[in-house]
Design a binder for these strands. Structure first.
Length: 345
DNA sequence: AATTCGGGGAG
DNA sequence: CTCCCAGAATT
């Protein structure tokens, strides 16, 4: 039997992070942090976490809010399905779970947006439950320590990692919060992807990767492939008062539920697109293209300003609305639009 | 099993 | 530039 967990706990007490704002036992706060931290680094999350919690102090407050309000406080953080699921899950806690946050990993995982690892983390931090997490940090630490080759996205590899993670849990449930934090902290500060600090690692003595000098080869990286290029024209349509026309995107897909500029396939189609919206416009010179990079494609955006010269019918419904610049910046909008509006001032 | 979801930190 | 982050849901 290895003293894996004991070494990790000792290291955590000495060198781990102890001042993160979500290091509390309130399951609502733990849950919120775990969702925000999915695929997102700590330094990015902190200001969003503080603002979100100030606006929605309890799960009841979140459940009672509108989706627009929730998305406005998520604006800029990305992966907006997290916010939509978080909102729906809050209403599920208030309804299905009667206002009491579920305690078991299985019940917690019933919440939309919460998978196996996130449910385990919430249970470990909030209720001292002996359930293993398997996030990017743990995958890297375990793949190196045990010398497990193969891309962790592959099911056989992931199953091995889960089994290993379960087998290494500390015997004492009271240690679960510190132990879970320890794995995350070790992966984030010592067993890093590019520059692992093996000299200070509490697991270095029996780390297979270190013994074989293959730390940088593990975990096996995801096979990469070229990402496609896309293009869109975004219409900056302003009325006589200088307000901007925004369109709410469909509930799923990219930027789902966010307020966005109306788009056309090209500047040549801009006038026709405005007509579809019920507007006669005068086009102004297009602004310079800029590129926005996603994980799975690159989007070149042509900003096309236009001024309303007449309307064929009332342009205003649940999904189409005029915003002052200040109101737009306070709404749930994607980052490229925020950059456009900030640059123009 | 592969794809779809953002945006940014850090080397 | 590249890699990847306290992943989950969908196809």
């Amino acid at each position: 039997m290895s003293d894996f967990s004991r070494r990790l706990l000792g290291w955590q007490a000495e060198c781990g992070r102890h001042d993160l704002p979500w290091q509390v036992s309130d399951p609502y706060r733990v849950w919120l942090s775990e969702i925000m931290l999915q695929q997102t680094q700590v330094t990015t999350v902190i200001p969003y976490y503080e603002r979100f919690l100030q606006r929605f102090p309890t799960v009841a407050d979140l459940a009672a809010a509108t989706q627009d309000d929730v998305l406005a406080h998520w604006s800029g953080l990305g992966y907006y399905s997290r916010a939509r699921n978080l909102h729906a899950a809050a209403q599920m806690v208030m309804g299905h779970f009667g206002g009491t946050f579920p305690r078991t990993p299985a019940e917690i995982a019933e919440l939309p947006g919460v998978g196996r690892s996130t449910a385990a983390a919430i249970a470990a931090f909030s209720f001292n439950t002996r359930s293993a997490i398997l996030d990017g940090n743990v995958k890297r630490v375990l793949a190196r320590w045990a010398g497990i080759e193969g891309f962790p996205g592959e099911k056989a590899i992931e199953n091995r990692l889960w089994a290993l993670a379960e087998s290494l849990l500390p015997p004492n449930a009271a240690d679960m919060p510190a132990y879970t934090q320890a794995q995350m902290d070790l992966g984030a500060t010592v067993c890093t992807p590019r520059k692992p600090a093996c000299l200070t690692c509490p697991l270095a003595d029996d780390c297979r990767a270190k013994a074989e000098g293959c730390q940088l080869e593990l975990p096996t990286p995801k096979p990469k492939k070229a990402i496609p290029e896309r293009h869109t024209t975004m219409l900056l349509i302003r009325d006589a008062q200088g307000r901007l026309l925004l369109e709410k995107r469909p509930p799923t897909g990219i930027w789902g539920g966010l307020w966005c500029l109306p788009e056309s396939t090209s500047t040549l189609q801009a006038t026709a697109r405005c007509q579809q919206l019920g507007l006669a416009v005068e086009l102004d010179p297009a602004l310079p293209d800029f590129v926005h990079v996603f994980t799975h494609f690159r989007l070149t955006i042509t900003p096309q300003p236009a001024t309303v010269s007449g309307a064929t019918h009332a342009v205003h419904d649940d999904a189409l609305r005029w915003f002052s610049t200040a109101d737009a910046l306070a709404a749930g909008i994607p980052t490229p639009l925020r950059k456009l509006l900030t640059a123009q001032t």
